[in-house]
Computed example of a mutant assay.
Amino acid sequence: MNEQQQLNYSRIAEAIAYIKSNFKEQPNLDEIAQKVHLSPFHFQRLFSEWAGTTPKKFLQYISLGHAKILLKDQQATLFDTAFETGLSGTGRLHDLFINIEGMTPAEYKNGGKNLSVNYSFAESPFGNLIVASTPRGICYMAFNDDEANALSDLKQKFSNAIFQRKLDLMQQNALFIFQNDWSKLPEIKLHLKGTDFQLKVWETLLKIPLGKLSTYGNIAEQIGNPNASRAVGTAIGSNPVAFLIPCHRVIQSSGNIGGYLWGNTRKTAIIGWESAKTDIVEM
């Protein structure tokens, strides 16, 4: 690390420490940049490069973490949680949870108790899978030949939710993709829970065309963080919706297939299957 890089690292470390210590004041970009003696524009760019997210989003993650402790561990009210987190009201607390957690503060406080999840099992060209949905969209899809294990994994994702084995219209539209009925794709809605960085990576994966491949480095560049290939790989490995969010279309820059949550053999088979399908369409 050269002298300039060391200086940049020190500034970002100082900024992170400041945000963690002063999040209850909800400092704005200008205030944080001033603390590390940078212009707001330069600081925003530098922070995003080093931390993989913007100062505003990082502040939101810190605020959310504190709010979670108050709601879950201390059973604080929504009003008190908003106040103790430095938010102007319960409306901002609600928006914070919806945008990052994909659920309301009340749903989080109750461990997803008010969240209704339908699930069903299906066959695909690549093995059996479980698909689950909430009223907002598909929340989970995973390859798993053992139904008991599949259901257990789902319940760990949404503890205390109300589960019902039911094949609904959202799931049917999602499963049509295995029948080559890609006309149903616009009808597929997703209900995802993740950090801003994860959501940005998953959104970028959706833009990889059928039958095409990308690399971890390319994805990092597309989201504006060219040095974040490792973080991109972690986000891809956390993909909760197999196949629909096509993490299988991302390989290493060397040409190696790379890892896949549901097995490298399955990943190779899916890539070959999609390539064959696009060849038929082009003919």
Rank of each mutant, 00 (worst) to 15 (best):
N8R: 12
E14P: 09
T85S: 03
P55C: 08
M170Q: 12
L115T: 11
N239M: 03
P105C: 05
N114T: 14
K72C: 13
F143V: 11
K193N: 14
I32Y: 00
K20M: 09
G86D: 01
K157F: 10
D80Q: 12
A132P: 02
I12R: 01
L244E: 00
N28G: 09
I19S: 06
E274I: 13
L175E: 02
P246H: 05
G137E: 06
G52T: 06
Q156F: 12
P27H: 05
E147V: 04
T215H: 13
D145S: 14
K267G: 05
E282N: 03
W50M: 02
D196P: 03
I219Y: 03
G272D: 09
L29G: 09
M283A: 07
T278N: 00
T195C: 07
K267H: 10
E84A: 03
Y9K: 10
Q5M: 05
T104Q: 10
Q5P: 00
I280R: 11
E187A: 06
S10A: 10
E14M: 03
E25V: 15
V131S: 05
V36D: 00
N99R: 12
I219F: 06
I16T: 09
K189T: 08
L244K: 09
M141K: 11
I177G: 04
K267Y: 12
S133W: 00
D30Y: 13
Y9T: 15
A235R: 07
K72P: 15
G127W: 14
F79Q: 12
T54E: 03
N239E: 03
N160D: 09
P27G: 06
F158T: 08
N22G: 10
K157L: 15
W202E: 10
A142P: 07
I16Y: 02
L261Y: 05
E31Y: 11
P246G: 04
S214P: 08
A106V: 13
G111C: 06
D95F: 13
L205F: 07
K189M: 06
K72E: 08
S253P: 14
F97C: 01
G137D: 07
A231M: 10
T278Q: 04
K166T: 11
V36P: 01
T268G: 02
T204L: 02
T90C: 10
A276L: 13
G255N: 11
K109D: 04
S214H: 09
Q252F: 11
M103R: 15
Q172F: 07
L206V: 08
E282G: 00
G111E: 05
E123Y: 06
Q75G: 06
L169T: 15
A142M: 08
A17H: 03
G102W: 14
R165D: 01
V131R: 00
G217V: 14
D80M: 07
P186H: 01
